Simulated scan of single mutants.
Amino acid sequence: MSDMKVWGFTDDRGTALGAVRVPGRVVAYVRAGAALLDLGVTPVAVYGSGHDGEGLDPVKAGELEAAGVPYLGPGRVVDEARLRGLGPELIVDVTYDGKSSYALDEGVAERLGVPLAALSVGNELPLAAIMGRFRELAAALGAPGGGVVDPVAPAEAALREAAAQVDVTVLALSGAGADQVHLARPHAWPELARLQELGVRVVDPGPGPGANWLTADWEHAAALRPDLVLFDSRANAVGPGAFPPVGHARVAPWNPETPPSPAAYARFFEGIAVALPA
């Protein structure tokens, strides 16, 4: 009877997880951890991805630093002894393909004997469903859900109104250097697809290799004649202070790893609503 599973959750790989009690000590990939914190679950630690270094990228951190959540470094080289010492009861990662965890090798969790939940952040789910899955996990972990006002709806309404009043084309990109840039394909990014649904004219970079990005030169980006450039604001990307002007486009930040929480995406939509008519 002592091994009876009283807690269960099925992640977005279809993996059924179980535990003898509700997990209280959660270690998470930074993006997932920031979302869970927004939703009322404070991780005991977070780890990064292969893009991250030994310090926590403040753009990806959300409120984690303010909450005093320690950072363990990149997940692929995480110190397993240190992770074990934290006594984790659940590891939460994300998945882009619905098959594998993104930032931490599942073998690490298996060696520790800790269940690993991977939630989808890829384009197989619309943005609302992605946020909904994180809410479901947070609720399963004991976060209060009743009476919480969802800030996304008013932020989306404000953005829809702003988009209807301007004739602005938007290009999302990630700077790779002085000679190269990754141009986002809107359909591949749930938040960019949602911008399009709300009336924002997010342009596609055109044909070529790459499911999520078209890698090109800055001249190609300028030839698309955007009015507003959403630049990748993560620490691993080249920012607007170091890349050439994209025609006469204005710039505004975009975090491709925004925490999948209503609070975080409401802030993103509010920022775009302000940037469009600027």
Rank of each mutant, 00 (worst) to 15 (best):
A16K: 11
L83H: 00
M131K: 05
A235I: 05
F269I: 05
D38H: 00
A222N: 05
L276A: 01
A19L: 11
A67R: 07
A188Y: 13
M4I: 15
L72F: 00
S261T: 13
A252Q: 04
A242N: 08
E219P: 00
R111Y: 07
Q196K: 15
G68R: 10
A184W: 08
G247V: 03
N236K: 15
A157C: 05
L37G: 02
S120D: 10
A109E: 06
D232G: 02
L125F: 13
V59H: 06
T258C: 09
A128G: 12
A158L: 10
L112N: 01
V148T: 13
V152C: 04
R267Q: 14
L86M: 01
P186Q: 06
V246T: 09
T95W: 08
D217M: 02
V251A: 10
D38A: 02
L72G: 07
L86C: 08
D3F: 14
V203I: 12
G177R: 05
R194E: 00
P253I: 01
H220L: 09
V152K: 06
G199W: 12
G48P: 01
D79K: 00
K60S: 00
K99Q: 15
A263C: 12
Y47R: 12
A264E: 02
H187G: 13
L83I: 00
A109D: 02
P245A: 00
L36V: 08
N255C: 11
D179H: 13
L171G: 03
R135V: 04
V170K: 10
G206K: 06
V202Q: 04
V20P: 11
R267N: 09
T42A: 03
D12F: 13
V30W: 11
L39K: 13
A223W: 11
F243C: 07
V152Q: 06
R13D: 14
L39R: 10
E110L: 12
R133L: 00
D179Q: 12
D150F: 09
G55M: 02
W218K: 07
V181G: 03
P277T: 06
A118N: 09
G8M: 12
A118H: 12
V92E: 06
V203D: 01
P70D: 09
S101H: 13
A278F: 14
G14L: 12
A164V: 06
R225L: 13
L192I: 02
T42K: 12
S261V: 11
E257F: 15
V114E: 02
L276F: 03
Y29K: 09
P207E: 14
A163C: 11
A61W: 00
E124V: 13
K60N: 04
R201M: 02
L36K: 01
G68D: 07
K60M: 12
P115F: 08
L141C: 09
V92C: 00
T42I: 03
V26H: 09
A273Q: 07
G177Q: 03
